[in-house]
Amino acid sequence: MPVRHPLRWVAAAVMLVLVAMAVNTLVTNERFNWPEQFEYIFAPQIMNALYNTVWLTIVAMVGGVVGGVLLALMRLSDNPILRAISWFYLWVFRATPLYTQLLIWGSLGALFPEIGLGIPFGPVFVSWETNTLLSAAAAAALGLVLNEAAYMAEIVRAGILSVDEGQREAAGALGMSRAKTMRRIVLPQAMRVIIPPTGNETIATLKNTSLVAAVPFAELTFQAQNIYGRTYQVIPMLIMVCLWYLLLSSILMVGQHFLERHFGRSERGAARPARPAALLSSGREQTGGGGGGGGSGDGGGG
């Protein structure tokens, strides 16, 4: 007799009833007004908002990665001033809410109506109106990039620290400069630690773009608010927007899966494909623990 699991059946029955209720209300509650909602799903405003959400995510991540690498290098530098600046930056941007930061970037024009170039405390040569220079789009992108850079810095730093110190010594003993060692030796190896959490960050950033409504800037959630402000169909509209977020996140998750598989594989040199001869010979000559000796630690397996 197999072991009985009566609780599983109870749980399944409860779930079934709940799902049936949910479907029932979605279908029979006329206040959802589905025909009208489906008209909005590809409406021009929503398409435009979707476009804004996508490019904001891309800009935030590209800028965040570049800024994050710089901040991580500053944080690990020998120069105490650079270290302090980086520490301070991370402290401020990670200890304040993104929503609040975005509100600040959006209202900068009220505090500094004009931004000019000139000598400090001296004459100003050129100046621009802040609201022209820092459009809503620019303020939204700036806010996301500055915030994301702080989070990416910690990820990049962890990646750099994961690379065996012997790698830096070997490169140094060959006469490589520290900058070149970082670029040619350390960062390529740090990637396998950096990539997986960066995938998570990308998905988090996609969802964080909804906060730029604070600027205000017309991305997906903001446009949905605009529309339900007119139609009063709050939840149906938000469900529809969630469908878009689900779709975009799912695409990113698939990409992340393949990236992780790629980097997980290249780390185990012996399993590299397209080198059948290598596989054969290394299978015989590989010694017990010799494989990890080249400084390739373990890590990405799980």
């Binding site: 012997g166 010594e169 140094g172 003993a173 030796i185 190896q189």
Partner: peptide
């Protein structure tokens, strides 16, 4: 300076206990 130290090291080869080959 770092560059001058690097220039000296170019003339001196070193082999480590743990090999320290570049795994990538």
């Amino acid at each position: 300076r770092e560059k001058e130290v690097a220039a000296q090291r170019r003339e001196i080869g070193m082999v480590f206990q743990r090999f320290n080959l570049f795994p990538h």
